[in-house]
Structures are given as C-alpha cells and as structure tokens.
Design a protein around this nucleic acid. Structure first.
Lengths: 196, 196, 196, 196
DNA sequence: AATGAATGAGATTTCATTCAT
DNA sequence: CATGAATGAAATCTCATTCAT
C-alpha cells in the first residue's frame, strides 16, 4: 500500500479507535498477552501509527486505568453530595451508594476489568477504599449505629472482597442487577443471615 | 566445560528443586513475567534440563496449581469427616472449617498465591466453592437455621469474595490470624454488624 | 488545528532556519544521531515542511558541507591574492596563511565540525589540501628554501594532521588563538624543537 | 531450518567468528551503520545466537575497543622496558617507539580503525597520549635536549595529529612503512625542514 | 541425567519519508 | 507555504524451545 495520509483520515478518530481496541484487548487478555501488533491490525493501521498517538504500551495502559479511576472518583464524589441533600436512613444511603458503583461497573465493563482487576494500581485503589470504608464504619459505630464488637477494618476488607467478586461474577456477567446485589450486601452485612 | 551427568545428580531431586523455584517465581512475578531462564539459573542447571522434567512452561504451571488444588481438596474432605465426628453447633463448625482453610493458606503462601489467585483454573475452583457453599446454605436454610429472605448463591459468592480478599491482605501478610479472620467472618455473616 | 500557510511565513526564512538548526545538530551529534524530527521540532515546523526545502537528510547534509567548502576555498584564493601584494618572507607568508585558516575555523566552529570532520567529503578535501601543500613545498624545495632530504608529501600529510588536531582541540575549544597555533606550527615545521 | 544445536558447532568458534565479522563491519561502516542483522547473516547464524555471546551491540563494540586499547598499552609498556635496556640516543629511542606503534597499527588495521578513530574512548586515549608526550617533552626540555621556546603541550598535540593522519593515510593504506613514517616524523619535529 | 549451542517466532520501538488536505 | 496523518523498512532484543553431544 502507498505511504502517507489516507483519504478522509482523522487523527482524533484513529486515536479513539486505537484506544477502544486496546481497552478490549487489555480487558480480554491482560497486559502481557495484549500485543500492539494485534491492536493495530484490528484498527487497520500500521505499528508506527500507534506510536504516533501513544508513547508506549505501558503508557496507553496507564492512560486507560486513569480514565477508569477518574470516572470512579467522579462518581463517588457525586454520591457524597447526594447524601447530604437527601434525607435517608443510613442503610438506604449505603445501599444507594453501592448501587451507583455497581451501575458504573455494569456500564463500563471493559474499563472495570482493566482498572479494577488488572492494573497494578488497582491494589492501591482498593486499599484506599478499605481505609475510607473503615473510617465510615468507625464513625457510625461511635454514633451508635453499629455494634462495638467488630474490628471494622476487617469488616471493610471483607466488604471490598465481596464487592470485587460480585462485580466480576454477577454484575459483569449480567447475572444480577446492581440494585439486587447492593440489597443483598447491605442486608447481609447489616443483619446477617441467621434466622431470628 | 564438561557435559553429561553431574556427579551425585538425582532426577527426583532436580525436579523437586525446579518445582520449588518455579513456585517461588510464579508466586512473586506471575505466569508471564516468570522466565524459564531465571528458574534454571537459580536451580543451577541448564535450560534443556528443565525440559527433561517439564514439557513446557504451561505444563509446570498447571502441575503446580494441581498440587495446590489436591491439597485443598484433601483438607476439605478431612473437614467433612471431622464434622460428623464432633458434635458442634453449626456456627462453630463453619468457623472451624474456615479456620482450617485459612491455616492451610497461611502454611502454603506461595502455592496459595498461584493456585488461588494467578491460575486460570482458580476461577473454576472458586465457582465450585461457591456452588458447594450455596448448597450447604440452602440445606441449612431448609433446616431452619437461616433466613429465607436471602438468595444463597449471592451470599456464597459474597463470602468467597471476602475469603479471597482477607486471605490476600490479612492472612498472607501475617496481619491477622486464621482464627480471628474466621471469627469475624462468621459473626458478620451470621449476625451482621448492626446494633440491636 | 488549522492547516496551510502560516501568517507571515516566508520560504527563504524557513529554509534558512532549518539549515541553521541542522548545522547545530549535525555539529553536535553527527550525521546518524541527528534526527529530522528533532530539527523540525526546534524549527517549530512539521516534517513535510522540511521535505519542502530539502530532498532528504543526505541532501541537506551535503548542502551544509558544500557551504563550508565554498567558504574555505574562497578564503584560500584570497590568501593567494594577498601573497602577491605584500612582500613577506616565506615563513611569514605561510604563518599568515595558517592564521587565516584557523581564524576561519574559529569563526565557523559548527560548519568546521561538520565539513572538516564529519563529512565523507572531508577526506577528499584534505587529500586536496595535502596535494596542494606538497606542490608548494616541492616548489620551495627547488627554490632552495627547504632541505632536500624530506619526502614532501609525507611532510604535507603530517602538517594537515597537525592542523586537524590543533583545530579540534585548541581552536574550537578556545584554548589557543589562531596566531599562536600558526606560530608554533611554522616554528616546529621550519626549525624543529631540538636545541642547537 | 531445524532448531537446536548444529552439527559440530562450537561456541568459542562461533563467538570468535561473530567478533571478527563485527570488527570488519565496525571498521568499514562505523558504529551506527553496522547492523547486527548483517553480522549474523555473514556468520550464518541467527540473531539470538549473537545475543548468546554478546549482551548488546554497545557491549560488543566496547569489547572490541578494549581489545585494541589493551594491546596498545601492552606495546607501550614493553617499549618503555626496552628503552632502559638499550643504550640509544634520544632521537633513536623516540624513532623506535614510533616505529613500534606504527607497526602495531599496520598489523591490526581493523582494530586500529575502530579503537583509534571510531570509538568515543579514542578521544580520551589521545588526550592521555598528548599528556604523556607533553610530560616527556618537558622533561627533555629541562634536561637541555629541546629548545625552551616551545609550548610543549601544543607540540605534543601537533605530533599526535601527525600520527593520526599518517596512520590513516600512509600506514593503513600500505603506502609507507612504519620505519619511514617514524623517521620523517622524528626528523621534522627534531630539526624542521628549513635548509640550513 | 545433563549440557552446549542454536533457533523460530515474535515483541516493541524508531526514523526517514510521503500522501491528502 | 504548510500541516495532519500515515507508512515502509528496518533495528534491537527476548523468550520458550530443541537438537546434538
């Protein structure tokens, strides 16, 4: 094929295309097994074109995880605003927050796969989640909502684990809805499953 | 340099050595980033020696995950036997079962890292765990121990997620003991954290 | 971004700019390590603009070496004219010629670096210098100024070597002045360093 | 072609072969224009074989320049020993030393091309040569052998330039013999070419 | 049982150059 | 006059794997 610019070509479009395909590939195969050669083949461009838009494989991966994290952070800060406006019970509030998160995951399955499971930075992110939740639980414990018998950091860790797994196997597979999963979680963690 | 068999060499010993080092490497770096060249360097043998004992990188990895799975299955069948012998409350039984599993993880951190987190087959294994737990929960629900309001497969999924995360961040790091983690889990999942 | 001609753009100016930057780069990094992408970045234009003015990397390099050679030839022909006008001793004449050359090098350090050291054509040029000097020395030998014991082509070769090295390490670094270097050369080559 | 070891293959031989071809290529084309792909093609092996013996292109180049430098250093230290044994005039001594160096260059033309002209480290080496020669000249000046009118560092610099150029254009081309070149140099630098 | 020597297949990345606008 | 977008042609290097001994 001839060299030079293609007819009607547009850099923004090409870049977006490469990014989308990269997201698909990273989500499906993980970082190592994803090949630039495959990405460009699917995008119908040559390898140098890739490097026109992204400095390296490493960099495009980080760019993708950043997109995920930014969106997730946006979501949680919105959630916080909401809390203050509406007048809800604690349980309802938490349930609604969880629903939002699960909904976000459901709407961004590939990004979630990468940013929440494959990225190195996911570790850090979850650690932060655990810390945040621990703080909240401690506060609510002091306010008398929660029992004093639990080490809240372990409860938080447990909850994040539950979220991870339920996201992967229920939300991302489409088996359960965000609302259902949120409800189960809140019910279980609030009241347990033992018959009274 | 001289070629051929080393003095005092023993196939079984060499194989075990390679396996042990491979376990370390896979546990630390994961499948892709682990290199055969590094394994044999640490074992002080050459690359063809590796292929004398293992057909491929893929195969040794599978062999390792099989070791993990076999041991884990052994453990759970023992557990079952135990249950029938001793006379315990359901909660105690479950707590004791969880303690056993966490203890096993603690005693086999590298194998656990690989077989429970890195292997493709971990997915399948956890699915089986979820199914098994779901069944048990259903049974116990019918026996009147547990509330009828919960979709037990989701509870099971949630529990496995909790186990995953607590193993990785509390057990394998040495931050908490198997007994403590088991207790928290059982308490939370049985009774919830809400103050009554 | 908008395409097409920039406001106030002027082909000659752009070409000169590219040429100047290319001179800097070739002088600093040599032919191979100099990148078109770097030249155009520093010139604040795009790569096709470069090819608007120069057919190839090879060609701009040759253009630069030609500039150097033309100027150097100009200088030496002026020198010759001068010789006929003023009435000097042979030694003074040569010393003055050398001073002129070194001064030219000092005033055009980048061009010199390229045209006298990096260009393939520098070889040819120096060969010509050697031949010219050899002829002169032979003439002066016949005129009785110089000893008959020396193979003048080797002396000429030696002298050009001295010039090369002293230019690079004394003139271009600013360590010595053209006049000083010319004096040392003439003194050494005329009389030697041995104490009489 | 099949994989694995070739019949009768020998690592030492292959490594030496690659080294020899690399020397040829670096000498002819310089560092940048020399390609590993070309070296291995000429050696009739594949690219990975090259990396079996040399860590990188950079490293094999350095290895080659080190060989040159070591041999040259050996030579000059031998020379020094010799000086003390034989009873010669200063001029004869220097002439003999130069002859040795030129002979070494003549016998190792490719290595010389690389180590004395292409390597980055050649700069440093020549700087050291200049310093060493300067010291010697200063000493001999103090001993009354040489005139006090010369800045000896410039004379040394000039001499190294002469050596460089004469090596490249007379020795390595086979146009003149080491002895002849050494004689001319010593004669010129000791006595000059002016008729007395 | 083990090594020495080699390769197939591919990965990422770079750079000069060129169409289409 | 100049740019935006793209490519051809390579280059260096890595890694699992395999013959021949």
């Amino acid at each position: 094929m001839a060299r030079g610019r293609k007819v009607d070509s547009d850099g923004e479009v090409t870049k977006r295309l490469l990014l989308d395909i990269a997201i698909e590939q990273f989500a499906e195969y993980g970082y190592h097994a994803t090949k630039i050669s495959e990405i460009v083949k699917k995008a119908n461009v040559t390898q140098p074109t890739f490097y026109l838009y992204f400095k390296s494989k490493e960099v495009i991966f980080q760019e993708i995880t950043k997109i995920f994290q930014k969106q997730l952070i946006n979501l949680t800060s919105e959630s916080l605003l909401e809390e203050y406006i509406e007048e809800k019970s604690l349980k309802k509030e938490i349930q609604s927050g969880l629903t939002n998160i699960f909904t976000f995951f459901l709407e961004n399955p590939l990004l979630t796969q990468i940013g929440f499971y494959e990225a190195e930075s996911a570790r850090e992110m979850k650690k932060n989640m655990v810390e945040q939740i621990t703080e909240n639980l401690e506060t609510e414990k002091k306010l008398g909502y929660f029992s004093e018998d639990y080490p809240m950091n372990l409860v938080a860790e447990s909850l994040v684990g539950s979220i991870e797994r339920l996201t992967l196997n229920e939300i991302l597979t489409g088996s359960s809805s965000p609302a259902d999963i949120a409800k189960v979680l809140v019910d279980v963690y609030f009241s347990g499953i033992q018959k009274k």
